[in-house]
Amino acid sequence: MSNDPTSIARKVPRIGLNRSEVALAIGFSANTVDLMVAEGFLPKPRVWHSRKVWLVSEIEASMSEWPEDGVPLSKGEKDVDDGDSWRASV
């Protein structure tokens, strides 16, 4: 058995992700992750010193609350999809 750090790292499940890893995991840019946090579509990161980490479980729970495509919104919910609503302003 190899003690190669990369093979060991593959065996450890990820429970926290940094900003760029969150973006990669959900298929958006890092700037869009910031916008999604500001709009409440993603949770705020946890902070340790200056390091920000998102818990995978909180990201999954948050995304499960997003509206499904084609499902009418509940009373009081606002439809923010203008075709470009997930893009961060440049």
Rank of each mutant, 00 (worst) to 15 (best):
G27T: 10
H49R: 13
H49Q: 13
W48Q: 01
V90S: 04
R46G: 03
K44M: 01
E68W: 03
S7E: 15
R14M: 10
W86A: 09
E65S: 07
G83R: 04
D4P: 00
E60M: 14
S74C: 12
A23E: 01
V56K: 08
I59G: 02
V12N: 00
D69M: 15
R87N: 07
D69W: 15
P67W: 07
V22G: 00
R51Q: 12
R14K: 12
D79P: 00
A25V: 01
G40T: 10
S50N: 14
A38I: 14
G83S: 08
N18Q: 12
A88P: 05
K52V: 03
N3P: 01
E39R: 11
E60T: 14
I26F: 02
P67S: 10
S64I: 02
S7M: 11
D82V: 05
G76L: 12
N18D: 14
S85T: 09
S7R: 14
V90E: 04
A25R: 08
D69K: 15
R19C: 12
S57P: 01
W48F: 05
V12G: 00
V47K: 12
F28D: 00
V12R: 00
N3C: 03
P43Y: 04
L24R: 12
G83C: 06
F41R: 08
F41K: 06
M1I: 13
V33R: 01
W66H: 13
R51D: 06
D34R: 10
G27C: 08
V71F: 03
S62G: 14
A38N: 12
F28H: 04
S2A: 06
A88C: 15
V37E: 07
E65R: 06
P43E: 06
I59S: 03
R10T: 10
R87F: 08
W86Q: 12
S7D: 13
W66T: 07
P67H: 11
L17T: 10
W86H: 13
A88I: 12
E58T: 05
K78Y: 06
G27W: 07
A9W: 01
M63G: 09
K75F: 09
R14D: 04
E58A: 04
V33E: 02
K75Y: 08
T32Q: 06
P43M: 06
T6Q: 15
A61Q: 15
G40H: 09
S62C: 14
A61P: 11
A38S: 14
L73Y: 15
F41D: 07
S62K: 08
W86D: 11
V33D: 01
